[in-house]
Computed example of a mutant assay.
Amino acid sequence: MNLYVSLLRTGVPALVGWLVALAAGYGLDLDPAALAGVAAPVVSFVYYALFRTAEVYLSPRWGWLLGCARPPQYPVGKAALPPA
């Protein structure tokens, strides 16, 4: 379940950033490559930071705008990778 939640909470801001960059290209005389290369990641980061901060400091309900109302929970003290 953690994998699903983490992927969802990464994918939703990326999708929002792409859609905003795409929408910004309409009506503006901007280079599409610049929009895709700069605007999409910046908007994605700002979107995630805004709603993650709101989720922590205001209410967990804001997490729904990231795709899931709770961040993934990782066990404490376990190694991230299996032993070699």
Score class of each variant (00 low, 15 high):
L22W: 03
G17R: 08
S59E: 13
G67I: 12
L30Y: 04
L22I: 01
F45A: 10
A69S: 15
G17K: 07
L19F: 13
C68K: 14
G25H: 01
A23K: 01
L3H: 13
P32G: 00
D29L: 08
V43M: 06
V42L: 08
R70Q: 14
L19Y: 12
G25N: 03
V42I: 09
V46W: 07
G11K: 06
P60L: 11
R70K: 14
Y47L: 09
G25W: 00
G27N: 00
Y48I: 08
L35W: 02
G37A: 11
T10P: 07
V12C: 05
V46D: 05
F45Y: 10
L35C: 02
A21L: 12
Y57N: 13
V12P: 01
P72N: 06
R70D: 13
S44A: 13
G11E: 06
V20P: 00
C68F: 15
L50Y: 05
V12T: 03
A33G: 08
L8T: 10
V42C: 06
E55Y: 05
P75E: 06
P71K: 12
F51E: 05
V20H: 02
E55S: 05
W18T: 11
P13C: 07
L15K: 07
L28R: 01
L50F: 04
S44G: 12
Y48L: 12
S6E: 12
G11C: 11
L30K: 00
Y4R: 15
L66M: 14
G25V: 05
Y26L: 01
S44K: 00
V5G: 08
G25E: 00
P60F: 09
G27S: 02
L8A: 11
G11H: 04
A33W: 08
G37V: 00
P60I: 10
Y57C: 10
Y4V: 14
V16Y: 03
V20D: 03
T53N: 01
G17L: 10
S6H: 12
V38Y: 04
R9T: 02
Y47A: 10
L28A: 06
F51K: 02
